[in-house]
Every structure is written in structure tokens, then in C-alpha cells.
Computed example of a mutant assay.
Amino acid sequence: MIRFSIIIPAFNSEKYIGRCLNSILKQNSTEYEVIVVNDGSEDDTLNEIKKFEESLNIKIINNNNQGVSCARNIGLDNSKGQYVIFIDSDDYILPGYLEYLNKLVANKEYDCIFLNYNLGVLGKIHERESCVFQISGDVSNEKTMEMFLEGKISNSPWDKVFNKRTLKEIRFCPGITVGEDALFCCQVLSESSENYIVDKSFYVYMQDTSGVTQRKFTAKKLNDISDVMIKIGKIIDLSVYKKKYHLMVFNQMVGYIFNRRFLSNILSNESLVFFDSLKHISINDIGTIKKKYAYIMSKMILMIKP
């Protein structure tokens, strides 16, 4: 039986993929398959992956470079496990991860499992200080969606475990440069009813590598994040989550509005989603001082915006 399908998209990851695959080798479990999608790497990534062919139950899929969303979708389409785990090629997992998950799902089948994670910087692990789950246990679908909109459950797919039955035909949207993870997670959460939160950390997210998460601002990103927020608004029940949804829009878009292209951003059609959400939240809903300042500036702009 294949319990877990571990999907790893890899692009020019020759420096890190070995560490990632080694961390799977150290797991005290054999009920898994590893699917590495080599997304058109131009370095020695493929040869590094092949070093693990004999020691890991690994499937290597070579693909022309189409981006992380396509790579993850290819992994999903070729997966056979009951549950799906995503790992970015420049990150890794700690010993005991699969063993813990095996024990957790032995007596009950879950739709989604949410875990804490660690930050890795310069080879050292730092425990995450925010959005930490303090206790483990079952959590309702309504509470899960609420925590997602509040940012207490991250947009990322790699700190979660997904039941294949829940994913159905849900896939990542190719071509979206930002927000694709949030849209995917929201779609899955809308289909989930049996959820579990874990107060443990097994995933190490490396912040100082040149992985897929490092991004620069472009006009397309503002367009994409605006489009994603509109799509999420159509997925969730706004009669229940209206205020929390608009707070999510503010938190997700504020960095794209207050950017070096500030004037063109606030005059763009994409900014309408952001400024509309301001009407539904107050400064007391905003978390950080920096965002409170941005909120005040936004409200002032809203008063004079044509």
C-alpha cells in the first residue's frame, strides 16, 4: 500500500535536491512513493536525483520548463498514494515526519492535516514565531476556513497533507505568478470536512536559497493577485466570512499596491478589489503597525480616488 505520495518539483536544484531526498531517506517508514518532476533544469539536477534511484522508491518525470504549478500538477496526475505531501526541492523534512503521520491516520481518515513548520536560515533551523498551532486536534471546516482567511493557516501547500479523495480534480493554475497556492488551498478547504491541526514541526522552509518563492514585483503579479482574490471570494460563503475575506484581500494585496510603481498601481483596474475591501474593515482589524499605516494611507487615497 502506498500511503503517501511525496511530490517534489525541481528546477536548477543541484545544490539542494540531495539534502531534500536524503531527508526522506531518514524517515522511519516505507509506505510512500517519491515523485520528482524535473522541470527543465539546466544544471546537474537530474544527475543528482538519479543518485537516489536505488535507495528511494522514486519516480523521475522530466518535463520542459513550465513552472512550479505545472510540475506539481504532473506530480498529482501521476500519484498513487492515499495522501499527498508537497516538498520544495530546496527545503527538507525532519526525521519522524512520516512515522507521525502514519500513526495519526491509522485510526481515522482526514481530508487535510495542517502542521507547523521551521524556518531555515544559513543552515540553521529557527522555530516559526507566528501563526503557530499551540495544540493538536480535530478542527471544523468552518474554523479551518476562518483561520485560512486570517492567515493563521498559510497559503503554502508544503505545510499540509492532502487526502487524494479531497483533491479530486483540483489542480494548481498554470500561468499565475502569485497567489496560485492560496487559490489551490482555498479550493481544497472548501471540499474538506475532516481536518486536523498539528502542534509539531517537521518541515524546514529555507529562506536563504534561490528557490521558487523569491519574487520581484511586476504588473502581472498585481493583476494575478487581484484575480485570485476575486476567485477566492466566489469560492467561500461571503455571508459567513465577509469581513475576514476583505481582511485577507487587504493583507494579500497591500504590498503590491504600495510598491515602487505606486501611482500606476492605485490607478489600475486591479486596485479596485483592494480599495473595495477597505470599506469592510477597520484599522482595529489590522495587525502590524506598518500595515496600519498603509491602511490609513489607503483610506486617504480612497477619499480622493476617481
Rank of each mutant, 00 (worst) to 15 (best):
I197E: 02
G67L: 13
N163C: 12
D208V: 08
G151P: 13
E146V: 00
I24T: 01
L189S: 03
D224K: 11
K290E: 14
K160Q: 10
E99T: 12
T30Y: 11
D91T: 06
S55D: 11
I49H: 02
F258L: 11
R165I: 05
S226T: 02
I225P: 12
F52W: 09
K299D: 01
S268K: 07
V105Q: 02
K221L: 13
I289P: 09
E31C: 11
P174K: 10
S156Y: 12
V139N: 02
P95T: 02
H126A: 06
F52N: 08
S154C: 11
G211F: 06
I125T: 04
I49E: 00
S23W: 01
N265L: 11
G96M: 07
G120T: 07
S79W: 04
F133H: 14
S264I: 12
R165T: 04
I74Y: 00
V34I: 15
S192Q: 05
N284G: 15
M248G: 00
S239D: 09
S239M: 11
Y196G: 07
K143I: 13
V254S: 10
V68L: 13
R261T: 09
S210M: 13
K292F: 03
N63S: 15
S13D: 15
T288I: 08
S136H: 06
K108Q: 05
V188Q: 07
I197Q: 09
L247S: 00
I135D: 06
V228Y: 01
E14T: 02
R171L: 11
L104C: 03
